[in-house]
Design a binder for these strands. Structure first.
Lengths: 131, 131
DNA sequence: CAGTATCCGATCAGATACTG
DNA sequence: CAGTATCTGATCGGATACTG
């Protein structure tokens, strides 16, 4: 679904001590896109399981298109599972997997860093821009 | 330099318990772009200080254009400092700041997660794609 | 050496409209 | 309700060439 894009020539050991720098690349890529993190965090806050419309409401600003695409990628990566109930009107529930939950911890580390340090980043930006 | 892009409507408390979801957004955005993480990690591995050409060699595949842009953003954010030596030929050194170093810990958390779990992600992708 | 300038194709994500 | 389809402007990043 999401093509990784080729990325040749990175020396694993030298760059990030990872045996697979592509994994880091791809992970960072996913983490970095506009909605992924907010969707998993929301799903977690909703108790780990929610339906499409609940997520839509929980992530203000997201469009159906982007929520759909984001969930599809998360499902493909094994971070959430999708369950369809054959009812009318249709009901679909998304549940965070153990793998998905395990990603929340390192993610929270970044969130915390932002909380702690972003003011300082903003100041640096202001200083820089003032020249 | 890097325009954040407007992003209205996110409920801080509900989404990520952050007092500033824009900070998280922007951080994730930076983290997620193609070279930022590899450049800071490389800079750290090079002892926290290196010149342009050293970084160019340490991050295989990066172009001058992207290294330059990435470093400029890192400098603007206060994560590295740039020092110019008025010599011929010119010499410019980049040094990671304390703020920059502090970002390495949460970042490493993600790198470790990728090392531990990416195989599982790949399997999930294969399974998903096989349908 | 340490960049900048320009061009360009690819991807991203918003808006809007439509559907089983 | 839970999506998909289509269009579009914006941004990203690679390739290449040039410069103080």
């Amino acid at each position: 679904m999401k093509k990784p894009g080729k990325f040749v020539g990175l020396d694993p050991a030298a760059i990030c001590r990872s045996s697979d720098p592509m994994a880091v690349r791809e992970l960072l890529n996913k983490i970095g896109d506009k909605w992924t993190i907010f969707v998993i965090l929301s799903l977690d806050l909703l108790g780990g399981r929610a339906r499409f419309s609940e997520l839509e409401r929980s992530v203000p600003g997201i469009s159906q298109r982007m929520l759909s695409a984001t969930l599809k990628n998360l499902e493909r990566d094994g971070l959430v599972v999708r369950e369809v109930f054959p009812e009318v009107p249709p009901r679909v529930e998304y549940e965070i997997t153990i793998l998905g939950k395990s990603l929340l911890q390192p993610t929270q580390g970044l969130v915390d860093w932002a909380k702690t340090n972003w003011e300082q980043v903003r100041e640096a930006q202001s200083t820089y821009d003032a020249r």
